[in-house]
Design a protein around this nucleic acid. Structure first.
Length: 118
DNA sequence: GGGCTGACCTACT
DNA sequence: CAGTAGGCCAGCC
């Protein structure tokens, strides 16, 4: 499989569907786009996204709830700023996926558990 | 083709 | 919770 136009489109679509204030892990984006093992392709797809489409790339983080960039890089600070601007709080340098994870929210809605978010 | 790299992930120590 | 190891897959020598 390669990053052809269709693949990129599928990944970009998933990312663009993430509502403000929520995040999704690379692996989950890959799965929803139809590539369960394609987590690494997602990172490439994000980097290949045209700046003009204003893709919410900052809502994509790794499965550990952490930003994928080195914490001392410019990209790291920028992503964190964008996320906090949407109301996402960082605890110990990490995002609480149970609370801000988009898929997690869907699951909670389905299973109807006690969910902390409004 | 062969080998290395990476905005990754899971499992184990 | 931090580090390590193995697995994955596409891109670039």
């Amino acid at each position: 499989m390669s990053l052809d136009r269709e693949t990129l489109k599928a990944i970009w679509k998933v990312v663009s569907e993430i509502p403000p204030g929520y995040v999704l892990a690379y692996g989950e984006v890959a799965t929803l786009a139809g590539y369960p093992k394609g987590a690494r392709m997602v990172s490439r797809a994000l980097g290949a996204a045209p700046k003009a489409m204003r893709l919410p790339w900052h809502r994509v983080i790794n499965a550990q709830g952490k930003i994928a960039f080195p914490k001392d890089s410019a990209g790291w600070k920028k992503q964190r700023d964008l996320l906090e601007r949407e109301g996402i709080q960082f605890l110990k340098g990490r995002v609480d996926l149970q609370r801000y994870g988009w898929k997690g929210v869907v699951d909670q809605l389905i299973w109807g558990d006690e969910m902390p978010l409004a």
